[in-house]
């Protein structure tokens, strides 16, 4: 029986889709069977980030409306064994799906796949309700910005109200140099406000933009520090106890790579 994880944030542009793509790829690289579902109907992105846009034939709404079989709509990623994508339609809107249909879909997928990772749209409306309906577990993505943290706080409250207990936090796009100067919220500040468990810290990394544009998840790039952070989160999802990357140095990129051994305990 698989596990359904929803990646959500409230605010847009904090990295939900990138996180979904990287964690999904990362888990598949560990030999698990993974399905990524894009629930951002009308504003789909996950297929682009995964580089699978040109292979879409059927989508989420086709499956839910019974226009095709589930298997037909799942796009198999040829680069990574065991990785599948269920894309969102671009020409419909969020009301094309109801939460109970998502629950049924997730139950169906859980029978055959180890992890189902749902990319949630920004906002707290219908799309959000659909995305979290079938989830067993939630990761809240935020960046060290007051507005993103505010929205994350709201999302955590809504997740709890929807019986998704103990959401875990991913802090994305952290710039250690700015934190050190006191120009950016530190991880401690964020956790102090949100009061939930931390599952990952992803440093700001130019490679993410490059890999996202190319449609190749950074998690597969051994030179990317963000990719390393995503690999660590992947292992934590699978139950390993992985120390956090030490970001408290202002050294150059190479020095950072050399100091990837964790200092802070989980």
């Amino acid at each position: 029986m698989g596990e359904v994880i929803v990646i959500t944030s409230g605010k847009g542009g904090v990295g939900k889709t990138t996180t979904t793509a990287n964690l999904g790829t990362g888990i598949a690289l560990q030999g698990k069977k993974v399905v990524l579902i894009d629930t951002d109907i009308g504003l789909r992105n996950l297929d682009v980030v995964m580089g699978l846009e040109n292979r879409i034939v059927y989508d989420l709404v086709d499956v839910i409306e019974g226009q095709c079989r589930l298997k037909q709509a799942l796009i198999k990623d040829k680069r990574f064994e065991g990785l599948y994508l269920l894309p969102a339609p671009q020409t419909r809107d969020k009301n094309a799906v109801a939460p109970h249909q998502m629950v049924d879909l997730c139950e169906e997928l859980k029978k055959e796949y180890d992890y189902i990772i749902i990319d949630c749209p920004a906002g707290i409306e219908q799309g959000f309700k659909n995305a979290i309906a079938g989830a067993d577990r939630a990761f809240v993505v935020t960046t060290p910005e007051v507005s993103a943290v505010r929205d994350a706080d709201r999302i955590i409250g809504l997740l709890e109200a929807n019986e998704i207990r103990n959401p875990q936090l991913i802090v994305n796009r952290v710039r250690p140099d700015m934190v050190k100067r006191g120009d950016m919220m530190s991880i401690e500040d964020i956790i102090d406000i949100l009061a939930i468990g931390l599952i990952g810290v992803v440093p700001d990394d130019e490679n993410i933009i490059i890999s996202t544009n190319r449609g190749e998840p950074a998690v597969n790039d051994s030179k990317s520090i963000a990719g390393q952070a995503y690999r660590n989160i992947t292992r934590r999802i699978l139950g390993e106890d992985v120390p956090f990357i030490n970001l408290n140095n202002s050294d150059g990129f190479l020095a950072k790579m050399k100091k990837l051994f964790g200092i802070k305990p989980a």
């Binding site: 505010r150 709201r154 409250g157 809504l158 709890e160």
Partner: peptide, 8 residues
């Protein structure tokens, strides 16, 4: 007995 979060 819980954190009063944004929106509550």
């Amino acid at each position: 007995r819980s954190t009063v979060r944004s929106g509550t």
